[in-house]
Nucleic acid binder design. Structure first.
Lengths: 235, 235
DNA sequence: GAATTGCGAATTGTTGACAATCAATATTTT
DNA sequence: AAAATATTGATTGTCAACAATTCGCAATTC
């Protein structure tokens, strides 16, 4: 009868109660990708359930979804652990990401409008500016926005979903490490090559430029640190 | 005390009880991809639980995993339904699959050995043989094996997983329909172009051949039937 | 002193029960 | 009779409890 019996919606009770496990999913995903709990660490069912104010059921359901997405490792009778990414895994993910991102550019080259092109060129200019100042903290989000803009603009939601999945998994690899500069001028040069191919509406060239860019980004990350403790933004 | 109290292990009690939900996952996946229960149909928790002899918990966990993989649609307070794939969705999936399969060929071109090449050439010959006889039932599994061999040989398990995921989702689109012949001579010609590029160890050419092949396969499927009631094997 | 064995606590896997929601039918009203 | 409304049945969402397994630590053994 009365509207909103709960005085404080508290962000967790806003959504329908039915999608509770999906809310928990998003929350745990935040914990994992936020890096507050490194790879290999255990996810305690009871602790998480109490933290979110629910029972263990929804938490377990979220675990299964996270496992299917490759963010969580399930060991029988042991529980859920944040997925451990080996260097070999990271190489694999980078290679797939190169192909997926290249495909995004290829598709985008066939449909890009001038507004999107202007956005990308603006990002290029801003990245050049911060690169000249060696401001890596400013470069990082711009770099992400550049790639995201392309992927979101290519008109393929399935591709975008897979792409961001891969990016998330890579976050596990380079979780919470220092950033290695060096080579983000060349990184932006590669960005410019991509935009030029898009401007030419040349799908093959766009793919090649994008694929090569990610591959070079992989090398930049791999040479900087062998273990999963290096963060690199110049991809 | 006595070993194996259950007279019939029945394939469901063989594995550890802990991975029960994952066994249920595989079983429901079989139901979905097997086509005995078309897209949009409802998956009843209680009925499935009784069928597998477990409670609803593991079934719900399996639902979440299937949802994360894009095989099941979850509607709040309504339950789980086999994912409905629109024509637009199918186009998206085909485009991503083209890029992923192309990437597999690109990677394979850099590492293929003569044994794998011989396998692929043998498959080409067998496909030519059955294509000459217009034996579509024989062509279909060979075609699948050809693509699977490439994907499994490219040395990237992450890519393979994503690829087979996409193939599974496409199965939902063309579930339980008649097969449209026409164009599977050209399909095998495209296969041959892929193998030739692999033989040349030419990554770019391999990608282009593979990408084009899937794109043409998409067109062959799309022109044959607008709705989700057409099965096409010549991809 | 090092390795092994044997508890006890904690955690996971599963279940059955209860509350909430939805679909479908029956009933009432206009 | 048609539309709107109430009621019933079924299904989903959530929870708390129980069984089984694992982990940590102490006691024992070699």
């Amino acid at each position: 009868m009365n509207n909103d019996p709960d005085p404080l919606p508290s962000e967790l009770e806003v959504l329908r109660s039915s999608s509770m496990s999906q809310v928990i999913y998003k929350e745990i995903e935040k914990i994992i990708l936020g890096g507050t709990l490194g790879p290999g660490e255990k996810l305690n069912e009871k602790a998480l359930a109490e933290r979110f104010g629910v029972s263990r059921g929804p938490v377990r359901e979220a675990f299964q979804a996270l496992h299917a997405r490759g963010l969580v490792e399930m060991i029988p009778n042991r529980g859920a652990f944040i997925q451990r990414i080996t260097k070999h895994d990271a190489v694999e993910i980078y290679d797939v990401r190169a192909g997926v991102f290249g495909t995004a550019c290829r598709l985008l080259a066939e449909r890009i409008d001038n507004a999107t092109l202007a956005d990308l060129n603006a990002l290029l200019a801003r990245m050049d500016a911060v690169a000249a100042k060696r401001d890596l903290d400013a470069y990082y989000p711009l770099n992400i926005e550049f790639h995201s803009t392309i992927v979101k603009s290519c008109g393929n939601a399935t591709l975008a979903s897979i792409y961001f999945d891969l990016v998330g998994r890579l976050h596990l690899f380079r979780a919470r490490g220092l950033v290695h500069g060096g080579g983000f001028e060349s990184s932006n040069a590669e960005h410019r090559a991509i935009v030029e191919a898009l401007d030419d509406r040349d799908p093959q060239a766009a793919f090649e430029a994008a694929y090569t860019h990610v591959q070079l980004g992989k090398r930049r990350v791999m040479v900087s640190g062998d273990g999963p403790q290096s963060n690199a933004s110049t991809t």
